[in-house]
């Protein structure tokens, strides 16, 4: 009596189960991925398109994800690559002005321009509006903004951001430093006139 080997059907069943699990886990992360995506691009429509492209590609190439590794970072790597592929490089090259002032400069500016002494929290919340921050962030040139968004909005480590963007960790640190400085300079201009 010849035996029907169950190997192939079993393999297919296991693969289907793994794929479903992958898809569920990826979908559970979609809120967090969207929060980052939304600030990497200029409009909600672009973010939605980018999310759909990202998830379509992720579901197609799920086998290249290694279970147990950082799935959110893996999804964001697809997303940032697609974003770059979409020809976003229309933006002008960033002006590389020297960073003369230290990291305390925004606090110092706000403090100098405050008539009365208030708490540190008030210095931020009272004087910056949501629109100020969102428009200041969207004006940060892409290369710098990508890193700021991944670390400050996405809460990724420098190492994760380096892997997502495929750049050295030293470049992450320098772009983050400059990106935050550009952001704070814009906030200073909006609140105290530079």
């Amino acid at each position: 009596m010849s035996e029907v080997t169950p190997t192939e059907p079993q393999r297919l069943a296991t693969e289907a189960r793994d794929r479903v699990r992958f898809e569920e886990e990826a979908l559970e992360l979609s809120d967090q991925v969207y929060r980052v995506a939304r600030r990497l691009v200029g409009s909600r429509e672009e973010a939605e398109d980018l999310m759909q492209e990202t998830y379509a590609r992720a579901f197609r190439s799920w086998r290249s994800y290694t279970p147990g590794t950082n799935l959110r970072a893996w999804l964001l790597r697809i997303l940032t690559n697609l974003n770059i592929d979409r020809g976003r490089r229309r933006q002008r090259a960033p002006e590389m002005q020297p960073l003369e002032e230290g990291d305390y400069f925004l606090y110092n500016k706000l403090e100098d321009s405050s008539r009365e002494r208030r708490s540190d929290q008030d210095l931020v919340v009272d004087r910056l509006s949501q629109d100020d921050v969102v428009s200041a962030l969207s004006a940060v040139p892409h290369d710098f903004r990508d890193v700021v968004v991944l670390v400050d909005i996405g809460d990724f480590t420098y190492q994760d951001a380096a892997q997502i963007l495929d750049i050295p960790i030293g470049t992450v640190m320098s772009r983050l430093h400059r990106g935050r400085r550009i952001l704070k300079t814009a906030l200073a201009e909006q609140t105290v006139g530079g």
Binding site: Y34, R35, R38, R39, R44, V124, V125, L128, Q130, V133, V134, L137, D152, I153, L183
Partner: peptide
């Protein structure tokens, strides 16, 4: 604050 207001 930045994280809060930029999280949509």
């Amino acid at each position: 604050f930045v994280r809060q207001v930029c999280s949509e």
